[in-house]
Design a protein around this nucleic acid. Structure first.
Length: 378
DNA sequence: AATTCGGGGCA
DNA sequence: TGCCCAGAATT
């Protein structure tokens, strides 16, 4: 079924040397490369999942200050932990990491285990991250196959397997395992990542400066642009919401904690409710056609009866936010009367503006707060 | 095997 | 806009 690897041992060796030589010369200077301490490698690899290097750097430095050791992570306060991750996304990553840290303290004497099976047993550590930790921290000859590596190898061997399919990772595993450096697996894996990030890029790769162009089948056959093969993703499904900004007579705002599972678990937002696209459109069209810098009252537009749920509200603005699989459209409204409304829901809380930084806000909420602050300055 | 998890960088 | 990013867990 899949192609055989036809490289001689001599070719493999010289390929590895060319790649490693380039890496020693050109490798990026990154905070987590100051050492190969397993904890630092682990934290960086988790943060780097589906996240670009430039985004991770400040988060990584702060995280290491706040939680310098595995034990510190295991014992960390949950709110502080989530706060350290605020804005980074995929929040289950940090919950899983603490779960794993506790496991390491309990089962592995507080030290990252050095056997690949044990590393892979940790919550949140999959084939990629396990290979990265194993190879970089413990020099285990394990591949670390991510999007970069699949792109590089798909071109190197003209592999047309759809890299969006789960089973394709096994194909690449075989190729990388068979061609990687056994003596310096950590540098080899990191070299592939750097190559994918700086030379063998998705569009317009710099083949002229590529240290392994002589080995590249796609370069030889002038088919670079055909690789990697990847099925297109579904578009994000649009969802429509109204968010209420309510303020009590002491000036505090009502916040609501999201459920413990699902999207943005345990994070705080203004109370939101889903509305139909029809209701959303009606109101947002009106919004588009008017100056909203001073806010607008639906009531004044005789839409009182047409726009259910949002009458009596001042529209502060619209927040949109794109996740990987859905797109939120949020009408942000404020009760036009500074109401004396109260709440008895346990997942809600009255919070003053200057206390907001103590709460973990996902991006859409941060955007809504910006709208609120802007309106308060007018 | 398909879906569900955020958010930003960049043409 | 659409694509990609040092992916893993859940269903």
């Amino acid at each position: 079924m899949s192609k055989e690897i036809t490289w001689t041992q001599e070719k493999k060796t010289s390929f590895q040397e060319d790649l490693l030589t380039w890496y020693r010369l050109e490798k990026r200077d990154l905070p987590w490369r100051e050492s190969t301490d397993p904890y630092r490698v682990w934290v960086s690899e988790i943060m780097l999942q589906q996240t670009q290097v430039v985004t991770v750097i400040p988060y990584f430095n702060r995280f290491m200050e706040w939680f310098p050791t595995i034990e510190a992570l295991a014992n960390a306060n949950e709110d502080k932990l989530l706060k350290a991750w605020e804005g980074l996304g995929y929040y289950s990553r940090v919950r899983n990491m603490q779960h794993a840290a506790k496991e390491i303290v309990k089962t592995f004497d507080g030290k990252m285990p050095n056997k690949i099976e044990d590393i892979l047993s940790l919550k949140g550590v999959g084939p990629y991250t396990g290979g990265a930790i194993g190879s970089i921290a413990f020099s285990l000859p394990e591949p670390a196959i991510d999007g970069n590596v699949m792109r590089v190898y798909s071109r190197l061997f003209c592999l047309a397997d759809d890299i969006a399919l789960p089973k394709t990772r096994k194909v690449f595993d075989r190729y990388v395992r068979d061609t990687m450096s056994q003596s310096e697996p950590g540098d080899f894996n990191q070299a592939l990542m750097d190559l994918g990030a700086t030379i063998c890029t998705p569009t317009k790769p710099s083949c002229e400066t590529c240290p392994i162009q002589a080995y590249c089948e796609a370069k030889k056959t002038n088919t670079i642009s055909k690789y990697p093969v990847k099925k297109k993703k579904e578009k994000a499904k649009p969802l429509y919401y109204v968010a209420d900004i309510l303020q009590n007579d002491t000036g505090a705002f009502l916040l609501e904690k999201r459920p413990s599972d699902g999207l943005l678990a345990d994070m705080w937002t203004f109370p939101m409710r889903e509305v139909t696209k029809k209701d959303y459109d009606r109101f947002s069209q009106i919004y588009d056609s008017h100056d909203v810098s001073t806010g607008m009252v639906a009531e004044q537009l005789n839409l009182y009866d047409e726009v259910e749920n949002i009458k009596d509200k001042n529209l502060l603005g619209i927040v949109t936010h794109i996740f990987s699989h859905r797109k939120w459209h949020i009408l942000v409204v404020q009760d036009k009367l500074n109401g004396l409304k109260d709440t008895h829901l346990t997942n809600q809380k009255w919070v003053y503006l200057d206390e907001f930084p103590q709460y973990v806000f996902p991006k859409p909420q941060q955007k809504m707060v910006e709208l609120l602050k802007k309106s308060m300055n007018n």
